[in-house]
Amino acid sequence: MVELVARTPCAGLLPLRVGAVLLDEVAPGALTSVSPYKGQAEALSKVLQAAHGMGFPAPSRATGDRQARAIWFGHGQAMLVGPAPDPALADHAALTDQSDAWAAVRLHGPGAEDVLARLVPVDLRAGSFPEGHSMRSLLFHMTASITRIEDGAFLILAFRSMAATLVHDLQTAMEAVAARG
């Protein structure tokens, strides 16, 4: 039998520290796109709660914790992050494996907000974007999902194929923030 070796999206690119800001690649576990079928949102939320311990997230929010999260991912869609999806979910929602589709990085440290302010056209300061908030927006030219997770860190998901650009853009912004001191 042949052996397939896995490679992470940001292999060789991260971690990175510039000034006080750190950027790491995270291994989020399984990523599953969960799109409730018509009229199934409530039922789905219950199954999600029972199986994974958190409800279906409201728009612009994330539920769950380090082990298992449900991140609102757009119109009629959430991303289940961490566990393999309970098969019962499939009765209520279209499930699609996205575990390999997204580069997942964590940006943290003082100044992380300033770094994102250089790339994202949304107010991500803690006052308007506290822990548990999540959003879809642009990160310079690419689309991204950004969630404020524990310790004020940001979990950023971007297309796997764009991982190099993601790191480049973040690094450029990190350098500019650091240079200002």
């Binding site: 799109s35 079928y37 018509k38 929602a93 279209a94 699609t96 494996d97 996205q98 589709a101």
Partner: peptide, 19 residues
């Protein structure tokens, strides 16, 4: 889907990056 046939129960998601 959203504009012309919102009643149809169909969901789609890009898997270009997944595979």
């Amino acid at each position: 889907h959203q504009g012309l046939q919102p009643d149809w129960d169909v969901r789609f998601v890009s898997v270009t990056e997944q595979w």
